[in-house]
Design a protein around this nucleic acid. Sequence first.
DNA 1: AGGTCGGCCTGGCAGC
DNA 2: TGCTGCCAGGCCGACC
Length: 319
Amino acid sequence: MPELPEVETVRRQLEPELVGKRIESASVLDERLTRPEPPLSVERAVTGRRVEAVNRRGKYLLIELEGERTLAIHLRMTGNLLLRGAGDGSVTDLMETEPLGGPRLYEPPPEPSHVRARFALDDGGELIFTDLRRFGQAIVLDQGDQLEDYFAARLGVEPLSDELTPQRLLELAKDRKAPLKSFLLTQSRIAGIGNIYADEALWRARLHPLSPAGSMKLEHADRLVDGIVGALEAGLDHGGASIDDYLDARGERGSMQDEFLVHTREGERCRRGDGEIMRIVVDGRSTYFCPACQERLRRRPRRRAKAKTAPSRSREAKG
DNA sequence: AGGTCGGCCTGGCAGC
DNA sequence: TGCTGCCAGGCCGACC
């Protein structure tokens, strides 16, 4: 499933190939992709425009176009963005830039299945969006207020930026009774973490996924920030995780799935001790953890109000 | 307003 | 062998 490391891997591959090129034509084959706007409006909005930058926010890939417009793409579950080089449609040109590859032969890739949109570039190349389960999204936003509002409503802190500090994490988790696992998956608080990296981050932080988010103290938040950053960077280092459908922009699988510390490792021995990795379901998501070494925090004991009768459900703001 | 759950979607697979 | 039904999960909207 594309999460931050997968989207960022694609972004890094697309950036040098797309910036400066012009989108000559766009063809959206699945009207679900651009909802609520019709395909035609997105096709028209991007056609003829030059790519100025390729950025990322959370799990969104942002293709910034001249004329203050951004094509925002979300891969959701099974979306892939494949870049076909100019010429015969092979990606040979791209692959030759791979370090330590040595001379390798690449067959022209077969026509991908489940194509939902195609964007033809002025150098003859093509950006192809495929999506088996059709959850993906491609919309056009005006840079400025519209774009800002769109993401402000949906996305919180960027976990690989300076914004994510233990103090900030504590603030975000304050009074939250939801499990840490759910907390990490809430994009409006921290953007970009999905089911895989939430499990990996919690294992690294030695925190039980069912601990109430608001029960963290500074030392836990400290560990969790390290866990989040460590898990995401490991994902980046391995080109993302390809559990089933994910491919990078060159059509290649990532290798992070071979490096998982807990995710999908039910029944295996924990790498940190004698514990056995368990699978539970949290918020409808498979959740893997080690019950022996991941600390289950308790809800913070109510501060014994020295006042006479503490209101039974007081939730005074920062009194 | 926070928390929880169903719906969206399709290929793969377990079970009969 | 072939059919049925369940499962995966990011995000949204509905509901408490």
